[in-house]
């Protein structure tokens, strides 16, 4: 195998990994603030993709501004959903909050998936490319859409990291994630930040959906696999660690791509790709039961 082959497979793995990271980082954000795993996150990613598609096709908006419109729309929808469905999580009257969060987000996932079939139709749809065409690197070819998705994903992740570490709102989110009571004492309203975290997580998922749509097409069930992969990434990175989920997302995308490219038995490589991702998770958890970055998170708690 040549270096070119390794390079192109690594580049493709990185793009997929960045998309994984964009989805997973939202799950992490929601988990660290609301203390629930959002099993409807993949379906918010699906909604984001469709939202961008209809903004492009109905209003003639170019793909990049449509992505921002989709992020804003999903931010708003997510806040409404959080207020409607997750309020009982903050009430002392709810005894089993973990189970409530699990059931309500699962229910939301099924609802969104099935309503999407009615609203958007069952057939896959594909929006126009962000930048059409391909780039040639010697014999190797990478589509502009993949390069754009990877680049835009990196920009969004860096913007999130900047927001989390350098702005007062980001630091307030961090404070709520560490201790709701202590945050409340210093004047931070945890309820407001619950909604905000859910909205930011959904907006990032929407961006991922809009970026991936010209590559994989849109389908109402496109969020099923990312739901599972995001959960794997969040555990791999360490529950609640934003940086951990970013690194774990990229690592998972890379390892899946390279596994398919280099597994010695070419007839089984593709079929075992997802199993390989879970195998990576199991090995990491044997040696680091709290995930790659779990230790720091626990100290924060």
């Amino acid at each position: 195998m040549s270096w070119d082959y390794l390079f192109i497979q690594a580049a493709n793995g990185a793009v997929i990994g960045i998309i994984y990271a964009l989805i997973a980082v939202g799950v992490t954000l929601i988990f660290s603030i609301l203390k629930i795993v959002n099993f409807a996150h993949g379906d918010l990613y699906m909604l984001g993709g469709y939202c961008a598609y209809y903004v492009i096709t109905l209003f003639g908006v170019p793909p990049l501004p449509a992505m921002f419109v989709s992020m804003a729309a999903l931010f708003t929808i997510a806040i409404i959903l959080e207020r409607l469905l997750l309020t009982p999580l903050y009430s002392d009257a709810t005894e089993r909050k973990d189970e409530y969060g699990l059931i309500v987000t699962f229910g939301l996932a099924f609802f969104l998936r099935n309503i999407a079939i009615i609203a958007f139709g069952p057939f896959p749809l594909k929006p126009p490319s962000f930048i059409s065409g391909v780039q040639h690197f010697g014999n190797l070819i990478v589509t502009n859409d993949r390069l754009f998705a990877g680049s835009a994903g990196i920009v969004l992740i860096l913007a999130l990291l900047y927001f989390m570490h350098r702005t007062i709102w980001g630091q307030a989110l961090d404070a709520v994630s560490q201790s709701r009571e202590a945050a409340a004492i210093v004047g931070i309203n945890p309820r407001r930040f619950n909604s905000f975290a859910f909205g930011v997580g959904a907006a990032l998922a929407a961006a991922a959906g809009a970026l991936i749509a010209p590559i994989f097409s849109l389908a109402p069930d496109m969020g099923v696999l990312p739901n599972i992969q995001a959960y794997v990434i969040v555990i791999l990175g360490g529950m609640g660690s934003v940086l951990g989920s970013i690194i774990a997302g990229i690592a998972l995308g890379e390892s899946e791509g390279l596994f398919t490219a280099f597994f010695p038995d070419p007839t089984r490589a593709l079929a075992y790709t997802n199993a390989f991702g879970v195998l990576v998770l199991m090995i990491v958890l044997i040696f680091r039961p709290n995930g790659l970055f779990g230790r720091r998170h626990l100290r924060m708690e």
Binding site: N12, S217, D221, T260, P266, A269, L270, N274
Partner: peptide, 14 residues
């Protein structure tokens, strides 16, 4: 002959 998960969408590496 190569088998695949029926829900797969990423075939680039293959």
């Amino acid at each position: 002959v190569v088998g695949s998960d029926p829900n797969a969408t990423e075939f680039t590496a293959q």
